[in-house]
Design a protein around this nucleic acid. Structure first.
Length: 511
RNA sequence: GGUCUGUUCGUCUAGGGGUUAGGACACCAGAUUUUCAUUCUGGUAACACGGGUUCGAUUCCCGUACAGACUACCA
């Protein structure tokens, strides 16, 4: 076999969702694994559903997750254009070829006539109500009309579509790389529209023509396409392209976390997790949907997580860089069954990758994001904070969200902790600790600790008895990173200020 | 309804005619951390059901159930 060529062919009808990204990823992994070419084709043949900005969104999303396009929209290539709306003439020619060879025909039926036909069949108790080898003979098309009539209709500008003439009885077989042999009888397939009355091709025609012309070797797409794959096989056959027909691999679907059905944006909204890679604002409704990127997911975590939703290496290794994925990936190890989506696993991956990040990078991140909020923070302080916080965070923003006490005194003291840990001994120690700290020239974590030890020893109070009260005083919380490090980071003066404040406001509670 | 595709712990999955059915996430417990989290150790938990085939079936075959997709001049 020659060079491997795969394509990701989304339709620009809105934001690309997570399932689409996974499809793109599998295509990309196969291309890289086999030193092939990854093509991006935009399937914008439905003018009604076109959404401005969607194409750019697709490109940016792929870029964010690290999927590089070798050929296609945005990068060009030998088979340009890669936007189907710009290839209209090509499809028209091939549709004509099909008509000439007798594999397709013109149909002039109106929407009402089609509806009436379906109603009639339904009323008669016919199981399938479709335009097929039987019903087409009673419709208005170039099979039932005289050639002169057909010509007259076309000349007069009557809207028409071109339909594929599906044989009445033929066993259509295809060997799916994931599912094995799939057989469908042609009587189950309808005479699909190939060219719409607006002159645009439908997915079926455009897809087959482009895959052929662009020399695609593997069609990797979602399982929702499996039912129409036999139709595509027939198209290859009627075009005379059987030998060049790509191999098919239909991917299992992503299912909603709870209940039944496939994963949808509604589930994501309802359960509170992102469904899009990047934040997307619907140009119509203006509704904003937060993306994985903005929610704090690292692209490497996102990719690792996604790759494992339907694929596994067959070993117990679960952490894979994109490079490792490309070398281990294989179509054979893709599952058949749909995968239920679980955001908790994505969070675990994120936490893992975040911990692998170099401290310098994290502190740089913290420093710059604080600067954006106009919060003063030296680089040294940022580095200390991320050092002490790194193994407690899941998302980068947690450094700030769970570490506000590094910048502000507690706005309130956690009720439960006050009730349980604040006591007279604590207040007594704190008052003495405050004075002891004030008298010391130097200050850091170890001095903070030794001073506290001295004070508690002098008062004859166990340090464990009051430590939580000290923490409460400094952070307002019952848990957090090493207290002595927190004190070092905020500095002696701030520690004293917070103790004074706590003594003033919390004292009353013990009297 | 019809066609097609599926079905191993709660979830993602490994495995495959004879296994203590393995791992990960989640959950629970213990240890460490004079806090919480981390970390470590341990634990609960699965072959949808019914028939075959077979010495033996979770694994192969057939049904049933359940689930999903498709059934447009949408992709």
């Amino acid at each position: 076999m020659g060079e491997v060529r795969v394509r990701f062919a989304p339709s620009p009808t809105g934001a690309l969702h997570i399932g689409g990204i996974r499809t793109a990823l599998y295509n990309y992994l196969l291309a890289r694994k086999l030193s092939g070419t990854m093509i991006l084709r935009i399937e914008d043949t439905d003018q009604n559903r076109f959404v401005p900005g969607a194409e750019e969104y697709i490109r940016k999303s792929l870029e964010w997750v690290g999927i590089k396009i070798d050929e296609g929209v945005g990068v060009g290539g030998p088979h340009a254009p890669y936007r189907q709306s710009e290839r209209k003439e090509i499809y028209r020619q091939y549709a004509q070829q099909l008509i000439d060879s007798g594999s397709a025909y013109y149909a002039f039926d109106t929407e009402q006539e089609l509806e009436a036909m379906r109603e009639r069949l339904k009323a008669a108790g016919v199981a399938i109500q479709q335009y097929n080898s039987i019903t087409r003979m009673e419709m208005r098309n170039s099979l039932t009309l005289k050639p002169e009539e057909v010509n007259a209709l076309i000349q007069s500008g009557t809207p028409f579509v071109i339909r594929l003439k599906i044989p009445r009885k033929e066993e259509v077989r295809l060997n799916d790389l994931i599912r094995g042999w799939v057989m469908v009888h042609s009587s189950q397939i309808d005479d699909k529209v190939l060219m719409k009355s607006d002159g645009m091709p439908t997915y079926h025609l455009a897809n087959v023509v482009d895959d052929y012309l662009m020399k695609i070797t593997h069609v990797i797409r979602g399982e929702e396409w499996l039912p129409s794959a036999p139709l595509h096989v027939l198209l290859y056959k009627y075009m005379g392209w059987e030998k060049q027909m790509p191999q098919f691999a239909h991917l299992p679907l992503l299912l909603k976390p709870d209940g039944n059905g496939k994963l949808s944006k509604r589930d994501a909204d309802r359960l509170g997790f992102p469904i899009f890679p990047l934040t997307w604002q619907d140009p119509e409704t203006k509704e904003i949907a937060t993306g994985y990127k903005e929610a704090g997911y690292l692209p490497e975590a996102f990719i690792n997580f996604l790759a494992f939703l339907g694929w596994n290496p067959g070993t117990t290794q679960e952490i894979f860089s994109i490079e490792e994925l490309t070398s281990e990936f294989s179509l054979e190890r893709i599952n058949k069954a749909g995968a239920r989506f679980d955001i908790l696993k994505a969070q675990w991956y994120n936490q893992h990758y975040l911990r692998q990040k170099p401290l310098e990078e994290l502190s740089e991140y913290l420093h710059s994001s604080l600067a954006k909020e106009n919060i003063a923070c030296s680089k040294e302080k940022a580095l200390k904070i991320v050092t002490v916080m790194q193994d407690r965070v899941t998302f980068p923003q947690d450094f700030w969200e769970q570490g506000k006490f590094f910048f502000y005194p507690p706005a309130a003291y956690e009720e439960a902790v006050v009730a349980k840990k604040w006591n007279a001994d604590g207040a007594k120690v704190l008052a003495a600790y405050r004075d002891a700290l004030e008298s010391k020239a130097a200050f850091d974590a170890s001095i903070a600790k030794s001073t506290l030890e001295e004070v508690t020893a002098a008062l004859g109070i166990g340090i464990g008895k009051v430590l939580q009260a000290v923490r409460l005083t400094i952070t307002g919380l019952g848990g957090g990173p090493d207290l002595m490090m927190i004190m070092e980071i905020i500095g002696k003066n701030e520690v004293i200020r917070r103790i004074d404040h706590a003594l003033k406001t919390l004292q009353v509670k013990v009297s």
